[in-house]
Write a protein that binds this DNA or RNA. Structure first.
Lengths: 206, 206
DNA sequence: TCATTTTCTGACCGCATGGCCAAAATTTAG
DNA sequence: CTAAATTTTGGCCATGCGGTCAGAAAATGA
């Protein structure tokens, strides 16, 4: 277990360590998605994973550290999936629609993970009491959307509007589509997504 | 203090009791708006109000009771203000715009109260662990918006769309306008509201 | 004034939490 | 097989929470 590779010394991790971390993160996701962030204690997460509480403290620096890792392991997936669906498209209108439908498609396959992610985003706070992930965590999304808008405005396909406001609006619309679907699982997610695509297409085009 | 009026016996409240309750509610609003729901303990609320912790327990059945009262004392104001601004209007498009601009106007004058309200909505949970105010608290708003949409669709001013999805989208857009403004106080709230009015006017009209 | 009622205080309780650690168990290396 | 390193256990701790309470203080009413 020493010369596996020459990665940095202070952070080398054994296979079993990685497996444990993944297991703990998965358990945390399930506990949070099931009962909310507030009651997701280390004891509960450990019990749900069938291990002792101390193991979590051994593998993670603290509860915050665990939560941050949950976010990191979940967050990148959306960009990947959606990016793939947007490959090859060039018109801003097509990109807009592909983005919305792509996100909705990803939601259907990752309900619990994204529910946990949303819980952490709204509840996890830093040492100063300020939200650790708030509006700021959406900056990346805002910029991606604004890029689409710029494309459409330059080509004349879209009218002139405040790109930041449009990005906030569209992003929040998608977030709430998810929240509504979580609250009412019978809600038709795909139909909702198509309606959203219609709404923002009309809101944007010249 | 006995025959002040013949209201129901079990709930009669003295003037000083009412003053204390109002004071405690105000303190709770400020503490929540300042540091979030999680760190708004009874001790902190009491300290901020300059009173002993026991006083809160004396005037309120429990922390939940206090939070519910915060919501009740804050929630009705919006409907009043906005309703007034919509008086006399008849076309759906005018109503839509008046609604959005009216809510934004109310926000500017009630920042801390509404910030606390939002905190409570997303954090307060009932005995079962489910959110006490979540999607459901918005039902009233959804129905009001859907009524405007129906009006416009019947008159032909609005196209056909899913009214529930539109209501969710518009309501979330307004919520996030507020959240963004709280995070970035320099953000131009009125300009944002006008942009929203444009967006939803275009999204709705035939 | 003085007895009665209302209000307030500050200490205390039980509980749950996140974090800690010595010792046990397990895995790995020689 | 044995010794060393890694991993796990289960109990312990300090902290902060909401809630309770006896007694002090203040307001009230005659």
């Amino acid at each position: 277990m020493r010369s596996e590779n020459e990665s940095d010394v202070q952070k080398r991790r054994s296979f079993i360590e990685e497996a444990r971390r993944a297991q703990i993160v998965a358990s945390a996701v399930e506990v949070i998605a099931e009962g909310g962030f507030a009651q997701a204690s280390l004891a509960r997460i450990a019990q749900h994973a069938g291990i002792s509480k101390g193991v979590i403290s051994y593998h993670f620096a603290g509860k915050d550290d665990l939560m941050v890792e949950v976010v990191e392991r979940t967050y990148g997936l959306i960009a990947e999936t959606v990016g793939a669906k947007m490959q090859g498209l060039s018109s801003a209108g097509e990109l807009l629609r592909a983005y919305i439908l792509g996100v909705a498609g990803h939601m259907r396959g990752h309900r619990t993970q994204l529910a946990a992610l949303a819980e952490i985003f709204t509840n996890l706070r830093g040492a100063d009491g300020r939200p650790r992930y708030g509006i700021k965590a959406n900056e990346e999304i805002y910029r991606a959307l604004e890029q689409i808008y710029s494309l459409g405005q330059e080509s004349g396909e879209f009218r002139h509007f405040d790109r930041r406001v449009m990005a906030i609006t569209q992003s929040s619309a998608i977030d709430n589509m998810f929240a509504y679907w979580v609250a009412y699982p019978d809600h038709d997610l795909d139909a909702h997504a198509r309606e959203l695509a219609d709404i923002f297409e009309r809101a944007c085009r010249s």
